[in-house]
Design a protein around this nucleic acid. Structure first.
Ligand SMILES: [Mn+2]
Ligand SMILES: [Mn+2]
Ligand SMILES: [Mn+2]
Ligand SMILES: [Mn+2]
Lengths: 147, 147
DNA sequence: TACATAATGTAGCCTTGGCTACACTTGAGC
DNA sequence: GCTCAAGTGTAGCCAAGGCTACATTATGTA
């Protein structure tokens, strides 16, 4: 009368937690583009006085077409203000997000460097890692740096 | 005769490095699905004796439709072997990748926990972070753990 | 054995985010 | 003022990865 071919053994990692983690990761990826764009726009504006489509394309490693379409979405979502053939401006909301991202980015890079990781590797890894760092983890990184 | 409205000031972060970092991040995202799937298949096979579409869907937090289409791609790419209405098997290539991912995943979680991050937060963050950890960074994490 | 249900498969929709090719606009320098 | 190269815009292609709705298959149990 063996009930199940599929043994009822408890899995190594509970399915529910893994599913929740992966869904969170997907949510983070959904906001990642916005974060990288507003950060780049803030950086470029600080460095050049303005952010242009072609600058963003070079900075982000994509074509100007991709930048254009993404900017349309970011405008729709209220992060930027775009007018044809004009420089790109952050809204208040965009500026707030950019500041948060710049702050978090700096902490992640500094933390990785503090572990002895070469500057360049730290910068490359941080660009991906930053979007998956929860407030608790960011705090832990900052705590570690303070020591 | 002011040559440029666009001042030639050196940007805070060089565009080339940022572009390279973002391109690397995008490459990592492209292999992320394969990594999460083979890891889940290996885990499920170890725990249940086999991995079925519905188990994967639950585990990954997506519908069985998404799982099916993704498995077709993973088979095309040589990671899994799939037959209609049968359990899913890893190829040698899939098994190798799964082992690497399980190993890396474990180190990332343990490292975060060692920083004082709660187990659950560590697990959630690790699910995203793991895919952006270069060999140099993984080594640094392991080094830190050994102490 | 038959059948109800769970599992699996598939058609077709959407959004994001890459791209090329081509068209239009701007503005710096002559 | 003109010109033309650089910048910008847009049409349309592709793949990945979500989804719902519906069709088909397998299988445990009556
Ligand atoms: Mn980033
Ligand atoms: Mn960043
Ligand atoms: Mn993962
Ligand atoms: Mn990521």
């Amino acid at each position: 009368m063996k009930k199940a071919v599929r043994a009822p053994r408890k899995p190594v990692r509970p399915s529910a937690l893994q599913a929740e983690s992966l869904q969170q990761t997907r949510r983070e990826h959904a906001s990642e583009t916005a974060e990288d764009y507003v950060e780049a726009i803030a950086d470029l504006t600080a460095a050049h006085g303005e952010a242009r489509v072609v600058d963003l394309a070079r900075r982000l490693g994509v074509t100007h077409v991709t930048v254009n379409r993404t900017l349309a979405r970011l405008q729709r979502e209220g992060y930027v203000s775009v007018q044809p053939y004009r420089a790109i401006f952050l809204t208040d909301r965009g500026r707030t997000l950019a500041a948060e991202c710049q702050h978090r980015h700096g902490i992640v890079v500094a933390f990785l460097v503090s572990l002895g990781i070469p500057e360049k590797s730290a910068e490359i890894d941080a660009e991906g890692i930053e979007h998956h760092v929860s407030p608790a983890t960011l705090a832990a990184f900052a705590r570690h740096l303070a020591k």
